[in-house]
């Protein structure tokens, strides 16, 4: 059989979503961002809601997200994405709005905007990529950096007595009554990717109902270049360390807390 005989419409089993263009991603190979970009855009295409969707890009590694995603997007100042999203959703309640933010953006400089957006129960989806480090600026300590972890601004390891504890902002957000759906996912294995995509789909289906209630999905990601490991090592390290402190799984669904987040000191 010749190659031409194989490349036929009826033989196609997988196609890249049209909502991602062919520009080379600006992310390091093995980083979770590329995968989250893909399942997010696939979901919009599969649900057929891309023409009604507006995305907000953050400041951080995903600052150029709008270069790759083929939908209408706005670029926020550092930490302010939930405020932009609020501004848009309030004047277009029938459109779909999501923010895409990293840990520094969401859990440090943008904590107030994030908490209050969720407290108002803005009917949007917040996508939170937690890799425990500031990747874009070259590997500084993030609010989510684990205790003892070495970064360029915690070169002797994160000392919680002076630098504070890694913040479980997702659990804090789950406490707010107007928040509808909170889950912690990862994209480091094919099985995890499938679960993560189902979570995104659920969040947009909730948003389609047009009611108050914020959906919040945390994605644990490696930052192999920032952690100074290979991608494979970084994923292993993440499973062995990150998952113990930031436990994957659903935290809240349809306004009901599924597990009581315990903060042990």
């Amino acid at each position: 059989m010749e190659l031409e005989d194989i490349i036929k419409e009826e033989n196609i089993v997988f196609k890249k979503t049209k909502l991602l263009n062919d520009k080379p991603l600006s992310y390091c190979p093995g980083c979770g961002h590329g995968t989250v970009h893909r399942i997010l855009m696939e979901t919009l295409e599969e649900l057929g809601i891309d023409e009604q969707t507006i995305g907000i890009a953050p400041v951080g590694c995903a600052v150029m997200a709008y270069e790759f995603m083929e939908i209408d997007m706005q670029e926020a100042a550092h930490g302010r994405a939930p405020a932009l999203a609020t501004g848009i959703k309030r004047v277009y309640p029938n459109k779909y709005v999501f923010t895409y933010q990293g840990d520094g953006d969401l859990a440090a400089i943008g904590t107030a905007e994030t908490m209050h957006c969720c407290n108002r129960g803005e009917n949007i989806l917040i996508i939170f990529i937690n890799n425990g480090i500031y990747g874009m600026t070259g590997g500084q300590m993030a609010p989510t950096t684990l205790e003892g972890a070495k970064t360029s601004t915690s070169p002797y390891g994160r000392d919680v007595s002076t630098m504070g504890y890694p913040i479980r902002i997702t659990e804090l957000i789950a406490q707010l009554p107007a928040v509808r759906y909170v889950t912690r996912q990862s994209v480091h294995t094919p099985a995890a990717v499938r679960k993560a995509k189902a979570a995104i789909k659920k969040a947009f289906e909730y948003q389609a109902e047009g009611k108050q209630g914020t959906c919040f999905i945390e994605f644990l990601s490696n930052c192999n270049s920032g952690w100074k490991m290979s991608a494979v090592q970084a994923n292993k390290w993440m499973e062995e360390n990150t998952f113990k402190y930031y436990v994957p799984g659903d935290i809240k669904d349809n306004f009901k807390l599924l597990k009581n987040p315990i903060v042990e000191l």
Partner: peptide, 10 residues
């Protein structure tokens, strides 16, 4: 800070 960024979005 939030107000002006809501204005930005809209």
């Amino acid at each position: 800070v939030a107000s002006i960024n809501m204005v930005y979005g809209a």
